[in-house]
């Protein structure tokens, strides 16, 4: 059941990451996906193998989340400074 809740959070986050146009909102979608991952990892740890080392994985996920946010904000700042753009569609040429 924990995994079902985690799957729901992951899917809602995926919808946001795919559908939103504003860079910050896309980052919110990614955060929500990682939120689901945290819950799934916590569930795996508790119900399958409550070994102390398993919790280290959760800390790594949280660290990844922090790095994603920090770099995302830095890229959003640069994008805004260079192009006055805050939407992904207006920076589409970056994907080429």
């Amino acid at each position: 059941m924990v995994l079902l809740v985690a799957a729901a959070l992951f899917s809602v986050g995926l919808y946001g990451a795919l559908s939103q146009q504003v860079v910050v909102m896309v980052m919110m979608g990614l955060e929500l996906m990682l939120n689901g991952l945290i819950l799934a990892a916590a569930g795996f740890w508790w119900f399958l193998a409550p070994d102390p080392s398993g919790q280290v994985l959760l800390l790594v996920i949280i660290a990844a989340m922090t790095v994603e946010m920090a770099m995302g904000f830095a890229v959003a700042t640069m994008l805004h400074r260079v192009r006055r753009v805050d939407m992904t569609d207006l920076a589409r040429d970056l994907s080429r």
Partner: peptide, 8 residues
């Protein structure tokens, strides 16, 4: 989950 959906 509802708060997550409310984000969008």
């Amino acid at each position: 989950v509802l708060a997550g959906a409310a984000v969008f």
